[in-house]
Amino acid sequence: MKNALSEGLDNTDSPCPAFCFQDVNKLYPSRDGLNVEALRNINFEVSRREFVTVVGPSGCGKSTLLKILAGITDATSGRVEINGVLQQGPSVEIGVVFQSPVLLPWRNILENVLVPAEIQKRDKKQSKDKAYELLNMVGLNGFETKYPKELSGGMQQRVGIARALINDPSILLMDEPFGALDAMTRESMNMELLRLKESIGATIMLVTHSIPEAIFLGDRVVVMSPRPGCVEEIMTIDLPEKRELSIINSEKFGAYDSHIRHALNSKVGLD
């Protein structure tokens, strides 16, 4: 399975980063003339197969950052590169998992997973096999012919993950994918996500509200501060590659946690 899922990533050894932001700014024009400065001077790069997490208080521009990278929103100024190439709109290299599952209610689960493959006009039979494989991987085998409303929120979110992976993206973007889930489901989803990372070999950027989640999942954590949204700090997380839930109670984890909290609190009062 590992090989099937990693095909198309053969050029992963080239030296350029998976993606990078160069002096990216974003202004949202507004009716009353007071433009919202959502992002200011964003500069960072992410190397291949890295798992970066982005934390920051609500409204600091995390979703905007992700949408710019996905090509859904244009940056006001600056430059985004994907695999060393200037980004101009959405790219096949990128798979996105949205904050809410955004499944199409008139398509069953299998058909939902196949949406990106249909858009790309990929081979039907092959994509279908791949969709079954992915649904199996996210623990939803047997649900192929069910409809979205017959699934729980967490299951729908997993369909969203399978859909994001159907075209073998080399970059996976996730915007608070587990935000709507309870703490317990969330933890198990995080464990699944780490397993997934192993098997797909993609670069992952995950946006979250939760500091522990950011530390637990990330190779690096991008800490953002609000108004205007800018990168406060990028922390490398030096925890063992194989992460277990118990790591959350370790001293090192606690140190990272309080450090990030401090960095955020120095800017604004975070809950």
């Binding site: 096949v92 955004v102 949406v115 858009i119």
Partner: peptide, 20 residues
């Protein structure tokens, strides 16, 4: 959001019309 989802997966305007 559905339209944005389609856009993120590189859908053309016609595909957005037909599929969403």
């Amino acid at each position: 959001e559905q339209i944005e989802m389609m856009a993120a997966f590189t859908a053309s305007p016609w595909q957005k019309f037909l599929m969403v």
